[in-house]
Nucleic acid binder design. Structure first.
Lengths: 208, 208
DNA sequence: GCAGAAACTGCATTCGATGCAGGAATCCTG
DNA sequence: CAGGATTCCTGCATCGAATGCAGTTTCTGC
């Protein structure tokens, strides 16, 4: 308990507590999914392990799947930032490729204990794959809107959506191919290069 | 399985009957989803309307969502056919363009009464979106594999996957944007027009 | 027709998810 | 530091999707 004199207005007790249980749920969930598998782990188990009632789990996460994506908008935010910071000479494709590098680097995502588990489950559990693709689709729509706003005269809404779809589709395809080829977390740097190059090739026609 | 000499060695009674109930399930499902919405329609209702037991539904479709995609592999088959029938002068891009045009034009997939309903539900029902994205991803992987096999020295697996992902992602993004812009997918005709328009916009950069 | 295979069905059960209502913890104001 | 208002936690009941099981019905090949 911090002293009452601390100058920085910190989040209330309530908020801190809530944040703590939220983290506990994520950690305990990752642990259980990893040990027993996704389908073999019930929400009741996770809740019990985090010492809350089963019913309460759903006030933290809307569904069991949502527990797998605690920071679902991180990628989209990074991409939107890349759009915001564009140089005048950059075309849409330049921005997207820069965003791809940024996402790969600032992988705030990978520090989450859930991220590694998620990657493994993605290949084998349909529900996880479905949710991941939905998260991606949501991000894609945000990106499309921002792109269209950034290039009003060259990218109408539909074209921007097509470009955003081509981009995320290309990246997703490349990642899937790597995973499928039995790529382990081994050489992340080489994978990054491969993805980057494949995406560049796939999007080449969009550079006008 | 039919013997080579019988003129129209027809499927057995059993198979015909089964096919009939299968169609009934699809038709009745499309009807109910359309009238009441997806979440508001229970499997029990659909089964009752098709005059089978609730339990039996699951011997026809593995899940409620699967009812929405009765010919999920049609797209992939069309594309694979385009790869098989390629002319020597065709590059990967030519093949993909031809294939997606074929899909957009007339496809067993598009005549299904379920197709228009599905496209409408795609926007609003997360479960439908998730399943649709998975189906697309599966098709994409098949296509990437075939493409890479057809151009062994110029297309590695990852690049082929990125290319396939870019094409399908672009079309999917365009469809989404058109729907958001108020495009209707009411009947089969409107639906086909929608797909055609999306394909046109999304694939423009690769043409010419 | 008949024996065997395949399909249909109801029943019970599991799990995810939601509405509801009582009670507990926290917050805010005087 | 009270005391009421607000928010949160929880158990209970309920619904729907999905699966295993076992008994019956329907079809097939001979």
């Amino acid at each position: 308990m911090p002293s009452p004199h601390s100058p920085a207005a910190q989040p209330s007790l309530r908020e801190r507590k809530r944040e703590r249980t939220r983290r506990a749920l994520i950690d305990v969930g990752a642990e259980l999914f990893d040990r027993q598998g996704y389908d073999e782990t019930t929400v009741a188990e996770i809740a019990a392990a985090a010492e809350i009632g089963t019913r309460t789990f759903f006030t933290y996460f809307a569904s069991k799947e949502d527990l797998l994506f605690p920071e679902s908008d991180a990628r989209a935010r990074t991409t939107l930032a890349a759009i915001a910071e564009r140089k005048p000479s950059d075309g849409p494709v330049d921005i997207l490729l820069r965003a791809l590098d940024a996402v790969a680097e600032s992988d705030t995502d990978m520090v989450s204990p859930m991220a590694a588990v998620r990657t493994r489950l993605f290949r084998t559990v349909p529900a996880v794959r479905g949710k991941a693709l939905q998260v991606q689709m949501d991000a894609q729509q945000d990106i499309a809107r921002a792109l269209s706003a950034a290039f009003p005269e060259s990218l109408d809404r539909v074209t921007a959506a097509a470009l955003a779809g081509a981009f995320t589709g290309a990246v997703a395809g490349a990642v899937m191919a790597l995973l499928d080829a039995g790529a382990e977390a081994g050489d992340a740097e080489a994978h990054r290069a491969l993805i980057r190059q494949a995406t560049e090739v796939a999007l080449a026609p969009w550079r006008r």
